[in-house]
Design a protein around this nucleic acid. Structure first.
Length: 315
DNA sequence: CATATTTGACCTGT
DNA sequence: ACAGGTCAAATATG
C-alpha cells in the first residue's frame, strides 16, 4: 500500500494520542477544581464523572496506540506470539523441597512483557476507572519514589493483559506518573454511575440519567455485596461494548465529548433526576425514578444505598 | 472466608 | 553483574 498514506495515518494518530493525553490532564485539572468547590463529600457525582472521563481517555489512548501497534508490528516478522505458557497457575506441589521447589518449577515459565504499546500520563490521582491489582513495587535507581506495578484485575478470569506502572513525580509529589502498557481486552466492571442525557428529554428541564451497571448480566458475589441490586448495562455501556471487540475510536471519542457536555451542565444544574432501571433478564425488570436536589443527595461516596431505601423509592 | 497488598526472592535483557 | 519486571508466600483487610 501507499507508505505515505499509512505514514500520515500514524502521524495523525500520534497527534490524536497527544491530544488525548492533554485532555486527560485537563480532566485532572478539572478534578482539582471540583474538589476545591465541593470539598469532602460535597458533590460526589461530578468527581466520579471525572473518573469516568479518565477511563474514557485511557480507553481511547489504548485504542490509538493499539492501532499503531498493529500497523507497526503486523507486517513485521513477529516472533512467537505470547503463547500460553504455564497457564495453570495453581500448579500441583512437587515432592521436592518445600519453598524453592516451586521456584524451580517456575523455571522457564517466567514471562517478561514483550515490547508493546505504552503511553504515559501525569495525573493527580491514580484512579482511572479500571480495576487494577498491585503485584509489585520496586525502588528504581536514582529515583526518590518507588515504582508500583499493577495488572488488570481480570487478568486471569478474562485474560486481560493490561498493566500499568505508577510512580510519584519527583518534581511534584502530588502528581502521579502512570505508564500504561497494553490495552484492556476485558469488559471491566464499571463502578461509577454514568450520567447521560436521555434522548427524549424535554428541553428546558434539567434531567440526567444516573445508571449503575456491571458489565455482565450475571452478578457475582462481590457485586451483590457492593450493590444490592443487579443493574443492567446502561445505554452508554451498550454503545461502548456491544461489539465483541471494543469497536471504534470515534465511538469512544464521541462519548467523551458528550460526557464533557454533561459535566458542564451537571455542574450548573441545581436539581437532578435519577433514573435507574434493571432489566437484567428478559423476565425481570425494575425501575427507579426520583427527583432530588443537590443538597439532599443521600448517596455516600460509594453511591450505595440499602434495599429498604430502594424499595421505598421505587414505589 | 475470599480477595487484595506487601515484600523479598527470582528471572531476564542489557 | 546489574537493573528492572514479575512471582508468590506471608500478611492485611473486610
Amino acid at each position: 500500500m501507499a507508505a505515505s498514506c499509512t505514514g500520515k495515518l500514524s502521524s495523525n494518530r500520534e497527534r490524536a494520542a497527544r491530544e488525548l493525553v492533554q485532555g486527560q490532564e485537563f480532566a485532572t485539572h478539572l478534578q482539582f477544581l471540583l474538589k476545591k468547590h465541593y470539598p469532602d463529600d460535597g458533590l460526589l457525582s461530578a468527581d466520579e464523572l471525572v473518573v469516568k472521563i479518565m477511563r474514557s481517555f485511557t480507553e481511547a489512548l489504548s485504542l490509538v496506540t493499539c492501532y499503531d501497534f498493529v500497523e507497526n508490528f503486523q507486517n513485521q516478522t513477529t516472533s512467537q506470539v505470547d503463547s500460553v505458557c504455564c497457564d495453570d497457575r495453581k500448579s500441583e506441589d512437587s515432592g521436592e523441597s518445600k519453598k524453592r521447589a516451586t521456584a524451580k518449577e517456575r523455571r522457564g515459565c517466567y514471562k517478561r512483557k514483550k515490547i508493546s504499546l505504552s503511553w504515559t500520563t501525569v495525573s493527580a490521582t491514580t484512579e482511572d476507572g479500571y480495576a487494577w491489582r498491585k503485584y509489585g513495587q520496586k525502588q528504581i535507581l536514582n529515583t526518590k519514589y518507588p515504582r508500583s506495578y499493577f495488572r488488570c484485575t481480570h487478568k486471569y478470569d478474562q485474560g486481560c493483559k493490561a498493566t500499568k506502572q505508577v510512580q510519584i513525580m519527583e518534581e511534584d509529589p502530588q502528581m502521579y506518573g502512570t505508564t500504561y502498557i497494553g490495552h484492556h481486552t476485558c469488559r471491566d466492571i464499571l463502578k461509577v454511575p454514568q450520567i447521560i442525557t436521555p434522548p427524549d428529554s424535554s428541553p428546558g428541564h434539567e434531567s440526567y440519567m444516573l445508571t449503575y451497571s456491571n458489565s455482565n448480566n450475571t452478578p457475582t458475589q462481590l457485586d451483590h455485596q457492593h450493590h444490592p441490586f443487579t443493574w443492567c448495562p446502561s445505554t452508554m455501556i451498550k454503545q461502548e461494548y456491544k461489539e465483541e471487540t471494543p469497536s471504534d475510536l470515534t465511538d469512544e471519542l464521541s462519548s467523551l465529548d458528550s460526557m464533557w457536555k454533561d459535566l458542564e451542565a451537571f455542574e450548573q444544574a441545581d436539581h437532578y433526576r435519577a433514573v435507574a432501571s434493571t432489566e437484567c433478564t428478559e423476565t425481570a425488570s425494575q425501575s427507579l425514578d426520583m427527583d432530588f436536589a443537590v443538597s439532599s443527595v443521600e448517596f455516600n461516596g460509594d453511591f450505595h444505598f440499602d434495599e429498604s431505601e430502594f424499595n421505598y423509592l421505587s414505589k
